[in-house]
Write a protein that binds this DNA or RNA. Structure first.
Lengths: 341, 341
DNA sequence: TGTTAGCACTCACTTAAGAAGAGTGCTAAT
DNA sequence: ATTAGCACTCTTCTTAAGTGAGTGCTAACA
């Protein structure tokens, strides 16, 4: 158990290091407001805190730097929520000001704004399209043997894909298929679409049109490749501003990581509500060994949800980021859900 | 006018420097195949070439490096086209192998392949959607006061946007509007859509439905924000592999440039057929002062065209890149055009 | 007259050594 | 228990010397 004074010292060190990125020395701490004891005393406390694993030295005679355990303790016990300014609130809410209505646009803009506000990199995961429900099917013929299938979902999202038509497929055949699809599949969530199409609707189509195996496999194909939630980045290059990434190799690894969308997905905790913080090696990724990731989630209507992440150095301004993420996720949930009515 | 021997020396220097990224010395040149004269002679020639502006020294007693003018001369007069291997051809053609039919997917995949083949960064500009012609309109109501408008083009491209409905707008009203739009606007290129809608179709709609000013402005809005050709990158982080970008600041500027899609558009020459090469400061951009950009264009059917660009260090392998771009642009044109039939 | 060998010279790069400064740990006094 | 004092450590900056690659010039050569 830490003494009050140790808590105070730890807090000051983390706060100061977050601001300055420089190892914090005893003399510096002693000058801080609220510190009534001498550098020598502080040195003793620091030695203890180091022994307990909360602090580290960069070399034998340097000031102290928070360890991962130190940051962990800090975010778990010392983090007082920050109040965000009205300015920041306005900026976040400006996402919705000019009646953008596509969820994708909203998310994209949110990513940009968040990175500007934090000067870290933001990653937004769009809501999972799989949970949208089919609102309308249509098929538009393009050439003699190809057509584009369009699925509009209840959220106003549009999926479309070009597919091959079987030979001698007439416009009236298409109309029949579209009618069947619209009769049978409206309200079905995209995630069940493929199964439903394959095992229920296929039989109906066959019955009405004879066997059109080609068409069916094409259609099944169309529904199969639905993308999961899309990723949007804001401020990818903000990393360059952080002194800890004054190292080509670190930046490079991060940039390469961000190009691999499948890998980056794993930074989002599954089905976790609230704010999650992962520090350094907790991210289980070499490139992010000196990074912290803070995530929050928002939801659209019922069930569908997306995530927001901020990725920055372990030395990031946790207070501020947590406050901003908290507000933004709430705002997104509110606004996006309201739009559904 | 350069002597034969000067040409030979210049060629060897550029070729060697492209390979090694190291300043080339006279002794090194003398050992090259086809060189029959001594280092001393070569030194004299190099001094002349430097005086003429084709070579530079990094410092007083270093080997020579091609200047921008040197590269320019090299690509204009010394560049013998390279023959690409069947392996490379296969790789490029693999874009089309698994019956991907969306142009966007094709372009995206091409960007990746091109960056893998060259180990530089590729930028592909999708064909300008503005020239696509309307194939089908539809409007799907979402809530009482919003709907999504969908435009399918002759290329199978789908544009969609959510817009507000006027109050008390019934489904049958929507059907009427859709019918009018489909009667009047099929075949119209997207670039003229807004004008046409505003000055011709608007009147018809008013006539049939009374004044629905709100709907009209919404619809005009929908057609207005059509995006221009989209950009796709491949191998954004390949820059990190080039020794000349072992400098955090240079990489940073490039990365920042690539985030700004509007700025990056300017690297594509307008309406220029064939292969274009811009070297260093010819790019008119600080971040690309040490880069060369090679562009080619492809076309889809008649009129519509997109561009391919490779961006690498001025020291890039012009021979190889030119050959690859040439082949790929041809292949894209062929395949994408064929698909339209 | 064009080509080449020889040689002094330049400059980047590396290594070593010394000086300065920040900060610690320990000891002893308060 | 706290603190002043001081020796010690380790980084960083500066300076100096040594090394090597490569040039430019001069003079000899074909």
């Amino acid at each position: 158990m830490l003494t009050n004074r140790q808590l105070q010292v730890l807090q000051v060190i983390v706060d100061d290091f977050i601001l300055s990125a420089q190892p914090v020395g005893s003399r510096q701490i002693s000058k801080k407001e609220g510190i009534t004891f001498s550098p020598a005393t502080i040195r003793n406390e620091m030695a203890d805190l180091e022994e307990l694993g909360f602090l580290e030295k960069t070399h034998t005679s340097s000031g102290r730097v928070p360890s991962e355990k130190g940051y962990r303790f800090y975010v778990d016990h010392l983090l007082k929520p920050q109040i965000i300014t009205t300015n920041e609130i306005h900026k976040i809410q400006s996402v919705f000001q000019d009646r953008i209505m596509e969820t994708e646009q909203v998310i994209r803009k949110s990513a940009t704004i968040l990175s500007e506000l934090t000067s870290y990199t933001s990653i937004l995961l769009g809501p999972d399209v799989q949970l949208h429900k089919v609102k309308r099917f249509s098929i538009v013929p393009l050439t003699a043997d190809s057509a584009v299938a369009i699925i509009v979902t209840d959220n106003g999202h549009v999926e479309n894909r070009i597919f091959s038509l079987p030979e001698d497929f007439s416009p009236s055949d298409i109309e029949k298929v579209v009618n069947i699809l619209n009769e049978r599949l409206i309200g079905v969530p995209l995630e069940h679409l493929q199964m439903k199409l394959e095992f229920e609707t296929a039989a109906v189509i066959k019955q009405h049109l004879g066997t059109y195996g080609g068409l069916l496999s094409s259609l099944i194909d169309v529904t199969a490749h639905q993308s999961e939630g899309k990723l949007f980045y804001g401020g990818k290059t903000n990393m360059f501003n952080q002194p800890e990434f004054n190292d080509l190799n670190k930046v490079r690894m991060l940039m390469e990581l961000m190009e691999k969308t499948t890998q980056i997905q794993s930074i989002f905790p599954l089905n976790q509500a609230g704010i999650q913080i992962r520090i350094g090696s907790e991210n289980n990724h070499l490139a992010m060994e000196e990074c912290s990731v803070i995530t929050a989630s928002y939801s659209v209507g019922e069930g569908q949800s997306g995530s927001i992440a901020i990725i920055g150095p372990t030395r990031m301004d946790y207070r501020r980021v947590v406050a901003l993420l908290d507000f933004m996720s709430g705002d997104l949930t509110r606004q996006l859900t309201q739009k559904l009515r």
